[in-house]
Simulated assay, not measured.
Amino acid sequence: MIRILLIVFSVFILLSGCASSSLYSSSISDKKNNLIEKLNPPESFTSRDLKIVAIGDSLTAGVGDESKQGGYIGMVKKMLERETGLKEVTLSNFGIRGHKTDDLLKKLSNEEVISRVKEADIIVMTIGANDIMEVVRGNILSLDFEPFRNEKKNYEDRFSDILSTIRKHNTEAQIVYVGLYNPFKLMLPELTEIDIIIEEWNNSSQRLIQADPNSNYVPVDDFFSRESVDKLLYKDEFHPNKLGYSLMADRVFNAIKNEEINYLSSE
Rank of each mutant, 00 (worst) to 15 (best):
N150I: 14
R207M: 09
V176D: 05
N139P: 00
I166F: 09
K153V: 15
M187C: 00
D212K: 01
N214C: 04
S164P: 02
Y177F: 14
T192E: 11
V176W: 02
E151G: 06
E193K: 11
N202M: 07
Q206Y: 02
H169T: 04
E156D: 01
F159Q: 04
S204K: 08
Y217P: 04
F148V: 09
N170A: 06
S204C: 06
P213L: 00
S142D: 14
N216G: 01
G138I: 06
N202E: 03
L191Q: 13
T165G: 10
F159A: 00
D157M: 15
Q206F: 00
Y177C: 05
I197Q: 12
N203Y: 10
G138Y: 05
E190P: 09
V176A: 02
N202Q: 02
F145L: 07
Y217F: 15
S204N: 06
E190K: 10
L188G: 07
N139H: 15
S164M: 09
K168C: 10
M187Q: 12
P189W: 02
P189N: 03
L180M: 12
Y181D: 08
I209A: 06
P213T: 05
P213H: 04
P213S: 01
E172A: 14
Q210P: 04
E193W: 10
E190R: 12
I198W: 03
T192C: 08
L143Y: 05
S205I: 01
V176P: 07
E151A: 15
T165L: 12
P147D: 14
S142M: 12
L143N: 03
V176T: 05
R137Y: 11
Q210L: 08
K168S: 15
F184Q: 04
N150V: 10
L141G: 10
K152W: 03
R167P: 01
I194F: 10
L188Q: 09
E190H: 10
V176S: 06
T192G: 13
P183G: 04
I166D: 08
E190F: 12
Q206W: 01
S215G: 10
H169Q: 03
L208P: 00
I197D: 03
S215K: 05
R149K: 11
L180Y: 09
R149H: 09
Q206G: 03
E156M: 04
R158K: 10
L188M: 13
N150E: 14
E199W: 08
S205N: 07
I196V: 13
Y155F: 15
N139T: 14
M187V: 11
I196N: 12
D161H: 06
T192M: 10
N216C: 01
K152Q: 13
Y217G: 05
I166W: 00
D144L: 09
E151L: 07
Y217I: 05
S204E: 02
F145Q: 11
I140Q: 11
I140H: 13
R167L: 02
N203F: 09
R158W: 03
V176Y: 04
I140Y: 12
L180K: 07
